[in-house]
Write a protein that binds this DNA or RNA. Structure first.
Lengths: 177, 177
DNA sequence: GCATTTCCTTAAGGCGCCTAACAATCAATG
DNA sequence: CATTGATTGTTAGGCGCCTTAAGGAAATGC
């Protein structure tokens, strides 16, 4: 959220006041949050140009991945990492915009089958090529080796967080501290 | 937002359908967004344990940085990267919780001076050491060299985005595509 | 003195997320 | 078969953070 990040020298100075402050860790942490936020903002702007919200785009991608097998709201919610109530809201919006369709499941009358409408398919066909261009442009400052390096570093961080979560509690809340 | 990321092989497959899809770029992009999101979630959970919201924490950090020079809502909004209306809301919450105080400026009667209350200072003193511990724990999977590497890679990405924004328009909207 | 700018705030709204409660339905059990 | 317990999707209410638009008050420039 911070517009400008503190310089490394400032972190060194602050480390004298706060013994637990690890300058290199804090610097990397702030850059990670900041860059993630900026990149997310660029992606959101791109999607906004096509009148798509982040939530809707996620659903669009999930449905586009396997057109033949319509999903259920529950499955979509699991894959998207939101509650089912949230997914209901996302689907409401997409349905109102004519992008997805809800249909009953013959086998199980509790469940709803969600699928892309022709308009939804057309939207994906139209937006995705440009989307991937946008992604490529964002990542263009890095060559292939650097991208692999970045992925490796990020994976290490994520691995540490997931193992930490499983260590502390067996219930394993999605995000623990 | 996606819970699980597509494997690199899947990206290679999708690249055949979408010519603009650059597998290494997309992989790095998704990992960046995902890791940023997870780390942000861990930070938010930590703050929630102390009844602090992200917005409030940002203000707390900004005010704690230079206790002697009270800030104005406008300066805080600029540094936090939000509108002044948003900052008014954040300050309302913090003031209600007794963390900050608004006082008039003798020099300029339009201006409001914002400063931490003793309770706000105490909150910072109490939370910041643990916060930096949390940050250090998140970054613990990386050694110092890897952290520097990560910062370098992230800076390259950010630099590319900021130069791109200044290239396209002279009006320079905060986030361009 | 008057116009412009700057300050902060209010008002209204959007989006995304959550929890809690609910009716409908399925599955398993006695 | 009938009851119990799970599961599905939805609604209702709420929170956090963000925006734009409008407005009063005060400073500044001409």
């Amino acid at each position: 959220m911070l517009r400008e990040l503190p310089r490394y020298e400032c972190l060194l100075g602050a480390a004298e006041e706060y013994p637990t402050l690890d300058p290199s860790a804090t610097e990397a942490f702030l850059h990670l949050l900041r860059t993630g936020d900026v990149v997310f903002g660029v992606e959101s702007s791109f999607l906004a140009q096509h009148n798509i919200r982040q939530g809707g785009f996620t659903v669009l991608m999930l449905l586009n991945r396997c057109c033949e097998t319509p999903s259920t709201p529950a499955a979509l919610a699991d894959h998207a990492g939101v509650t089912r109530a949230t997914m209901t809201g996302l689907l409401d919006t997409l349905e109102k915009d004519g992008i997805i369709r809800r249909s009953p499941d013959a086998q199980d009358r509790r469940t709803v089958l969600v699928s892309l409408t022709p308009a939804g398919v057309a939207l994906a066909e139209r937006v995705l090529p440009k989307y991937f261009e946008c992604v490529a442009r964002i990542m263009s400052p890095l060559n292939k080796t650097e991208r692999k390096q970045l992925v490796g570093l990020l994976q290490k961080i994520q691995l540490g967080l997931s193992s930490e979560a499983s260590e502390s509690t067996s219930k394993a809340p999605p995000v623990g501290v």
